[in-house]
C-alpha cells in the first residue's frame, strides 16, 4: 500500500507496510501514481514529461520496489495474531487519586471529576494496594508507570506523596523502577508541590487551553470564576523549574476555538516548549463538539501549525508539539505499532476505592469493571476482548495509511460512539491522518534544511 500527498511544496510518498518514506520530484510522484495501473509505454502517453524523464523516474521506482521500499505487501496480520496470544504483564496504572475537582470544565469527560459517582479521594491504603497489585502483575518488567489523575490530583496530594514514598521502598525490594507522572489544573500548585514533582515526577501535564478568553470560557472554577490568571504564572514557573523538560502544557480545543493554532502559538509565545493541543471528544449534541463540517478548518490549522513549527525551528526558537512528534528512523517494532495502546491488559485505571477498569475513560461504566486492586482481575474475558483488539480487527484500519503510527485509535472513543471497541471513531481518524501527514512533512523540511546547510558548508570550503 502506498499513500501519496503534497504538503507545503513537498511530494511525499509513504510505503505503508515497510515504513519507508520518500520525498520525490513531480515526475516520480506521477509515475508512482500510475505504476500499478499501466506500463511504461502507456505512462509516456499519459504524462506530460519527456520520455527520458519518465524512463529515469520509472527506473528509480522499480529499484525502490526491488529493495522492498515501495509497494510492499502487508504480511503482518498472522504475526500480530501470534503476538496478541502472548502473555502480557501490567506495565502502567492510572490512579484516580481524586474524584473531585475545583474546576468545572464544560467539556470534562469525567463530569467535574466525579465520573458519574460521588466525590471521593483515594486513601493511602488503596494507593499502596494498587502499587502492590502492579508489582505482583508486572512479571520481570523493570520500568513501571504510575499516573496520578483525577479529578484534580492536588486535592489529595498528601496521599500522592505517601504513595510515591511507598513506591520508592518497593523499588529496592523488587528491582523495579517507578516512573510517576501527574496531571494538574494548576489552581493549588505551590512551591512545595513543584519541588516534590521536580524530584519525583517523570512528567507533569499542566492543563491550559491557550488564549485567556478560550481558557476561561471552557475552564471556570466551581464558583464560576476565571482560572487563567491564577494558573498561568504558576505553570510558567513550574515549566521553568523543570528546565523546560519532562512536562506538557496541554490544552483541549473545541469547535468554539477552531483557530486552535493560535492557542498553540500563544503558549509558545509565553515560553512553553512542550505543548499539546488535543481535539475535544464530546457527544454530537454538545455545542462545543467537533463536527464533520469543521474538519477542513482543522486541517488548515494543522498545516499552519506545521509551517510555524518549521519556521521557529529555523529561527532557533523551537517548541515541541505532541501530535507532530514522530520517529522515522527508530520508533517501536511493528508488533507494538499494530497491537494498540495497551488498555485493558498492560494499562489499567484504578478508582479511589480500588476498582480496576481498562482505562481512565471507562471509569464509571460499570460493565467494564474488571476487578479490584485487593483481589485482582475477576473479569478476564473483558481483558481478553481488549487484548484481541488490534488494527486487523478493525475493518477501517486495514485500509488506512496511518495504521502503523496510530495503532488503531482509542477504544474508549470507539465504544462511546459505536458501542464496540473494535470500531473506529471517524472524526478522530481523519484528524490523526492529517497529523501524521504534517509530522512527516516537518521531517522532510528539516531534512532539506540539513542538506542545504551541509551543501553551504561544502561550498564555503
Amino acid at each position: 500500500m502506498v499513500h501519496q500527498y503534497k504538503n507545503n511544496g513537498y511530494n511525499i510518498v509513504m510505503d505503508v507496510c515497510s515504513g519507508a518514506i520518500h520525498v520525490v520530484d513531480d515526475v516520480t510522484y506521477d509515475v508512482i501514481a500510475l505504476f500499478e495501473k499501466c506500463d511504461l509505454e502507456d505512462m509516456k502517453t499519459k504524462l506530460t514529461y519527456t520520455p527520458a524523464e519518465i524512463e529515469e523516474a520509472y527506473g528509480e521506482v522499480e529499484e525502490l520496489k526491488k529493495e522492498g521500499l515501495l509497494f510492499t505487501e502487508d504480511n503482518y496480520e498472522d504475526y500480530i495474531q501470534e503476538v496478541k496470544e502472548r502473555k502480557t504483564v501490567v506495565k502502567a496504572l492510572c490512579l484516580h487519586i481524586a474524584h473531585d475537582c475545583n474546576l468545572a470544565c464544560r467539556y470534562c469527560f469525567a463530569g467535574e471529576g466525579e465520573y458519574k459517582g460521588d466525590r471521593s479521594l483515594m486513601s493511602e491504603e488503596v494507593g499502596k494496594a494498587a502499587l502492590d497489585f502492579l508489582v505482583a502483575n508486572s512479571g520481570n518488567r523493570h520500568n513501571l508507570e504510575v499516573d496520578f489523575f483525577g479529578g484534580e490530583p492536588t486535592l489529595n496530594f498528601g496521599v500522592v506523596r505517601k504513595i510515591v514514598e511507598y513506591g520508592r521502598e518497593l523499588e529496592k525490594m523488587h528491582d523495579k523502577h517507578f516512573r510517576f507522572t501527574f496531571t494538574t489544573n494548576g489552581l493549588l500548585v505551590n512551591d512545595e508541590i513543584m519541588e516534590f514533582s521536580n524530584r519525583e515526577m517523570d512528567n507533569v501535564v499542566m492543563s491550559i487551553d491557550g488564549r485567556k478568553e478560550v481558557h476561561d470560557r471552557m475552564r471556570p472554577t466551581r464558583g464560576g470564576k476565571n482560572s487563567y490568571d491564577v494558573i498561568l504564572p504558576k505553570f510558567l514557573r513550574f515549566a521553568q523549574s523543570r528546565n523546560h523538560q519532562r512536562y506538557y502544557a496541554r490544552g483541549t480545543f473545541t469547535r468554539e476555538n477552531l483557530d486552535f493554532s493560535q492557542d498553540v502559538i500563544h503558549l509558545a509565545d509565553l515560553g512553553f516548549k512542550q505543548i499539546s493541543m488535543e481535539p475535544v471528544v464530546g457527544l454530537p449534541e454538545e455545542p462545543y463538539s467537533i463536527r464533520e463540517e469543521d474538519l477542513p478548518q482543522i486541517f488548515h490549522e494543522y498545516d499552519l501549525l506545521a509551517r510555524e513549527l518549521i519556521r521557529r525551528n529555523r529561527e532557533g526558537r523551537p517548541f515541541q508539539f505532541f501530535h507532530f512528534m514522530i520517529d522515522l528512523t527508530g520508533g517501536p517494532c511493528v508488533a507494538k505499532r499494530l497491537s494498540g495502546c495497551g488498555s485493558g491488559t498492560e494499562y489499567l485505571a484504578v478508582t479511589p476505592w480500588g476498582d480496576l477498569y481498562p482505562c481512565h475513560q471507562f471509569v464509571g461504566e460499570d460493565e467494564f469493571k474488571v476487578g479490584d486492586v485487593f483481589h485482582g482481575i475477576n473479569k478476564p474475558e473483558i481483558c481478553d476482548e481488549f487484548r484481541n483488539c488490534n488494527v486487523y480487527t478493525k475493518e477501517k484500519c486495514k485500509e488506512c495509511f496511518a495504521r502503523f503510527y496510530c495503532s488503531g485509535g482509542c477504544a474508549a472513543n470507539a465504544w462511546k460512539f459505536h458501542g464496540n471497541i473494535n470500531e473506529t471513531y471517524d472524526l478522530s481518524c481523519q484528524m490523526e491522518r492529517k497529523r501524521v501527514e504534517c509530522a512527516i512533512m516537518i521531517k522532510a523540511a528539516m531534512a532539506e534544511e540539513r542538506e542545504n546547510m551541509n551543501n553551504g558548508e561544502e561550498t564555503q570550503q
Partner: peptide
C-alpha cells in the same frame, strides 16, 4: 537517486530495547 530522497515484539515511542 536523482528523483527520490528517502527520509527513512505510538509513532514517537522508542523501543526500550533500543
Amino acid at each position: 537517486m536523482k528523483h527520490v530522497k528517502t527520509l527513512t515484539g505510538v509513532g514517537n515511542q522508542t523501543c526500550e530495547n533500543e
